[in-house]
Design a protein around this nucleic acid. Structure first.
Lengths: 251, 251
DNA sequence: TAGTGGTCTAGACCACTTC
DNA sequence: AAGTGGTCTAGACCACTAG
């Protein structure tokens, strides 16, 4: 990558070390985003500049950037440039928030923090978040409102190590947490996996949501991962589905 | 597309009629699959052959095929060729069947047909499937088993017009319906949208699944669409989530 | 007008499969 | 050895944005 003829296809290394150039470029770009060289919302160098810096053709840089755009890690804007993706409400709404009204358009929920505390991680929390035993976690419980009515109660568990100081101050209500992770802690949530079950609400849960005990709800268990693939959040949401549903695209 | 210099960028048409060449190529390839020129599992002409037939460069054909591969409509195999995607169990499992065991690998369910009948579509069925009032539909009810135990009971509603003769004979148990649609009726399911809610099973539903009444379950409402975007199936599934969950990738 | 991403081309060579 | 898709390059031109 640092000589005009890159060493990718040197004889003797074709089998073992073969990695397409554009993948190497893509990985390096991700690495720079992880390191914070380019932060969310900032513009990347132009394709030409990246190409000449890396000693590859523009087409190779383009293919790398196309993949990052497909993963929603960058946003391309013709005539302006390529930007590191932000966790603004628009992105959250289309990528990470799957509860939508049965009729009408998706909307961002209001939020009310119920509690937040810091404590030692349980065995299960260590397992799910990939923590060493004894590590600390931060717990946040909150209710989220849709159309003015409580619709979701959720528990968010975070490794304290990568969110230093979180919870010492008040956590803002009505905040987009992934935006907070990005702006305050330099942590970019890149993808997540959810496991969904149907459950019956307990008396306490029902009270928090303002419905009678015995009401059914979706139990959504999410692990969110950063750019480098490490788990940065475990979130369990209980969602009422009387006026809303979980939207899933099978494409 | 039929002359060496395609008319895409003729002066005077740049604004109004502008459509990138590769999109035109992509749409034509889809159209040919819709028409059955190339059926599921069959190999397409090579990129070079398509390029010279259409009077474009290989790179343009490649970009069109790359998009189709990203949509799972074709499968590319280096050294062999590009094939129209099939609805084999592997594809169903990774693209259309989202209920997976809590521990262990995804598996394809057994199936038991409960009933099938043909009747006039209700107002709601016409709405969901885009049918004209008075059109006929075919109803199939079946129970699906995972690990030998009933886990899903579902109702499948199909426009009779595009599945002529279906239900006259016995519908095979244990069959992959999307494979059946493709091989017997030339209908390729290309994508689907699911709306998921949590519900309490009725006495009858609970009996069919072998659990006590009042049990919670996922209510999965799916509209499946063919290559041309028309709705070809409405499926409502009630899924037990005691040993399984709905898997959702937020990528 | 200058600079960016988007499209399209032509050609070279590599990796993989099949005969 | 021949044919396929996969990678990489170099260069031209178009569409869009901003100063």
């Amino acid at each position: 990558m640092n000589s005009p003829r890159p060493p990718v296809t040197e004889p003797g290394f074709q089998k073992l070390g073969f990695r397409p150039l554009y993948m190497q470029v893509r990985d390096m770009l991700v690495q720079r985003m992880v390191q914070g060289v380019w932060g969310p919302g900032q513009v990347l160098p132009s394709e030409q500049d990246l190409a000449s810096e890396l000693g590859v053709s523009q087409g190779t840089v383009r293919k790398a950037l196309d993949e990052l755009a497909a993963q929603n890690l960058v946003v391309r804007r013709q005539g302006r440039g390529t930007f590191v993706a932000e966790h603004d409400e628009a992105r959250i709404l289309f990528q990470f928030f799957k509860i939508v009204p049965d009729t009408g358009n998706p909307m961002f929920p209001e939020s009310r923090i119920l509690s937040s505390e810091r404590r030692e991680a349980s065995t299960e929390e260590c397992l799910r978040l990939g923590l060493v035993p004894g590590a600390d976690v931060i717990h946040v419980r909150r209710v989220r409102l849709l159309g003015g009515k409580p619709a979701i109660v959720e528990t968010v568990t975070l490794p304290a190590k990568i969110f230093p100081g979180l919870g010492d101050d008040e956590i803002p209500n009505n905040h987009n947490l992934y935006g907070l992770y990005a702006t305050e802690f330099g942590v970019t949530v890149a993808k997540a996996i959810e496991r969904i079950k149907a459950v019956i609400l307990t008396t306490e849960e029902a009270a928090e949501l303002g419905v009678e005990p015995g009401h059914p709800a979706l139990h959504v268990d999410r692990i969110a991962r950063a750019l480098d693939g490490s788990a940065v959040e475990w979130r369990v949401s209980l969602c009422l589905t009387d006026d809303h549903h979980y939207h899933s695209d099978l494409t």
